[in-house]
Structures are given as C-alpha cells and as structure tokens.
Amino acid sequence: MPRAVSLVARAVSVLCVVLLVALVVFDAVAERFTAGLTPVQFSQRLKADLLDDYGRIVGVAHNAGDDVAAANEAVAHGVDAVEIDVTSVGGQLHASHDAPVPFLDTLFFRGPTLEEAWETARLRDTVVLHLKETSRRYLDQVAEFLRVREPRRVIFQTRDAESLRVLRRTVPSARRLLLLFRPRDVERLRSDAGLVEMIDGVSVRDSVLEPELQSWLRRRRLAIFAWTINDDRRMNELVERGVDGIITDRLDIMALLGGRREVPR
C-alpha cells in the first residue's frame, strides 16, 4: 500500500513539474486561459485611396471588450461597436476569448466580467456579443443580463444556429449573425432555408468571403460582417462589393469607419 501511495505521489509530482515547465515555456498560451486573450490593436498609415461610403459600414473593434484598456482605446478612436467574447466563469458571465481552465476557473481566471466590458462597450450605440457557449442556462443568463440594462443595439454572433433560435425568442430586439468559419459552414447555410430565414446576417471569415458568396448573401438580404480585416485595400474591396460591417484590429480603420478621417493622437 505505501508503495502504491508513493508511486501515485511521484506521478503527481512529475505532472506538476511538467505543468510548471509548460507555464514557463508556453507563457502566452497560459495567459490566454488565465487572463483572457489581449486584443492586438494597432495603427498603420492608410495605403488605399479613401472611399465616400464608409459611413454606412459598422466598424467593429475585434475582441476589444475582452480587455478594458483595449475597449477604451477603440472607443476613443470612435469605433462604431465593440466586440465582447462572452463566456461563463464559475456561473458568472465574463469577457474572454478562450474558455478558462475547467474546475479551476474561479481561482485562475482574472479577465474582466461582462459587466466591466459592457461599461465601456455601452459608450457606443452598438455592442457585438460573440457567444462562446451554447447551453440554455448560459443563453438565459445573457438574456437576463441584457434585460436589466439600458437598451443598446445588440448584435449576437455565434456559430450555433440553435442558440440564435433561442435568442430570437428571448432577446427579439437583437440582430443575429451566424458565424461562418469554413466553407463547410457556408454549405450548411446554403442547404438550410429555415436557417437563412431565421438569421439577420452572417459574420464571416475573410478567406471564406468569395464574391459569389457575397452576392448570394446579398440576394437573400442578409447582413455581412467580415473579419478580421486589417488591410485597407481589402477593406475598400469589401466596401465596394457591399458589406455591412468590418471587424478589425486597426485603430485607424475603426476611426475611419466611425466617421473620422483623422486618427486621434
């Protein structure tokens, strides 16, 4: 018996040493699970010629709500909307791109709560909530969170069609975007007329957004939000082809789409 205890204890020790070494080596990855992903916002000099119709495009600060400082910076640059990744930590709603470590989430996770992220995001007219989970309890929590707050134009985006169906009933005023990551997601959408009818639009990865898909979506009057657009020439191309929203990390693009022709210093 003591021998078995000793063996288990040694195995646990080895595992712990491996975990500690992994924390040192994979520092950035570990940070994502303990503090959430810090958005990488940056500015660049615009290379493309400016168009006249940026005003109708909703500029969205990519994941900025996951970090209060990043959200503040995006708001200061006049962004139209802040995107918040909504996840559940210990039964409470938080803003985090990645799901925190299971069972230890309340001990390890120190990212902002949804309430804290909302406080900054609500400074703009529109808030984009990226729903990271699909359970009914989680969706009810999100609906309850919005019910007791001052009205804002809320856009939900999720890859789970069922979540959008539930939210259509519980938060009817919000717009619902289906996330399209891969061509397979596009095929699923094309083959499901009920789904096309139920959603207000799509939030689509740039590499998947072919001109033909864009025309198909337009014909069905679905709103198109494209991500993550950090190249201003590509932004112009999409604007000319007719997108409704651009999700970006670039502060100067946020300022431009928010109606500013000059980036604040």
């Binding site: 020790s13 712990c16 975990l19 924390l23 503090a35 001990l107």
Partner: peptide
C-alpha cells in the same frame, strides 16, 4: 507532491 500541487495552483492563480 502536495508542495508541487500547491506550487501549480499558486502559479496559475498569480499568472
């Protein structure tokens, strides 16, 4: 083993 488990928990909680 107990000390190392505590070390991992402390490391994670103060990362």
């Amino acid at each position: 083993a107990v000390v190392l488990v505590l070390a991992v928990l402390i490391a994670g909680a103060n990362f």
